[in-house]
């Protein structure tokens, strides 16, 4: 029972990180049709810039804000340079371009920060909490709260603001949106910026738990992607749920089968989902796909 509780807590913590990336993936994918393989790199950039600012003596919260802003700017630059130009080419070329961006950013990370893992002190200094036998790292609670707050903010943003509804319109019907005077190119830039900022937040949140290196991005990016696919590609709640499931799957398979094979199991489940439930596991059965 205690163990079970522990797995759940850890799983949800990791899952929340993936969820932040999955939200970015979903937003970019639905607005631009592009799956940004460089998404995970923004977690790396966010985490490492934040550490640099903290080490330079800036207060923690200022560092975080700067790190998010810088990552978002880089996201915008990437969209304006590499993506904009190739938006209407084939899926394969877009995949390779985003892989190229990922490689480039990882390389920049290596040049700027070197290979040594870097630490970040936890944002809140508290003793671990004991709850139903599980030891909960306060950072986990913090991550979870941040996720909930962000979800609420995003909800308000998408549902209640003009830009948010413009983005949603772009998702549903880009042509109609264009006729209504919404510029898809602006929306694409906005989506990439937002996704980069979310990636940065994910990176900053996970660093106190796992440390940050220049190569941390790719795999958590892919996990976020997996979460999005399992959640059905088209909605933020679906993606978040999918990502939390990936986190749980990882800790449970790690706990009950083997930590070593947990990634293999995650991808096996992904492939099975793709085969049997290509619209995601939350999709209602509907015979209407013509």
């Amino acid at each position: 029972m205690e163990l079970l509780m522990q797995y759940i807590v850890t799983g949800l913590t990791v899952g929340s990180i993936y969820a932040l990336l999955a939200i970015g993936f979903v937003t970019v994918y639905n607005i631009t049709g592009i799956l940004n393989f460089a998404q995970g790199e923004f977690a790396m950039i966010g985490a490492l810039t934040c550490i640099t600012f903290v080490n330079a003596g800036l207060p923690m919260y200022a560092s975080i804000i700067f790190a998010i802003l810088i990552s978002a700017t880089i996201g915008l630059i990437v969209e304006r340079t590499a993506i904009l130009h190739a938006r209407n080419t084939s899926v394969i070329i877009l995949i390779i371009i985003t892989i190229g961006v990922s490689t480039f950013l990882k390389g920049m990370g290596l040049i700027i920060w070197g290979t040594n893992p870097k630490q970040l002190t936890p944002l809140i200094k508290m003793e671990p909490i004991h709850f139903m036998g599980a030891v909960i790292n306060p950072q986990s609670i913090f991550i979870f709260i941040v996720l909930l707050i962000l979800l609420a903010v995003l909800y308000v943003f998408f549902e209640k603001t003009y830009i948010g509804s413009a983005l949603r319109a772009c998702e549903k019907n880009p042509r109609a949106a264009k006729l209504m005077g919404i510029n898809p190119s602006t929306m694409s830039a906005l989506a990439f910026t937002l996704a980069a900022a979310l990636g940065a937040i994910a990176g900053i949140l996970i660093t106190p738990i796992t440390d940050a290196t220049y190569e941390m991005g790719f795999l958590i990016g892919v996990k976020g992607f997996v979460g999005m696919v399992i959640g059905g590609m088209h909605s933020i709640p679906g993606a978040v749920a999918g990502a939390l499931l990936v986190g749980l799957l990882e800790t449970f398979s790690g706990g009950f089968i083997s930590t070593f094979y947990s990634d293999a199991i995650t991808f096996l489940v992904l492939i099975l989902v793709l085969f049997f439930k290509p619209n995601g596991i939350f999709a209602r059965a509907s015979g209407e796909r013509v």
């Binding site: 590499a82 390779i96 371009i97 892989i99 190229g100 961006v101 990922s102 490689t103 480039f104 950013l105 990882k106 390389g107 920049m108 290596l110 040049i111």
Partner: peptide
């Protein structure tokens, strides 16, 4: 890999 990524893009 920086140069490499850039050339591919």
């Amino acid at each position: 890999i920086v140069v490499y990524g850039l050339i591919i893009i």
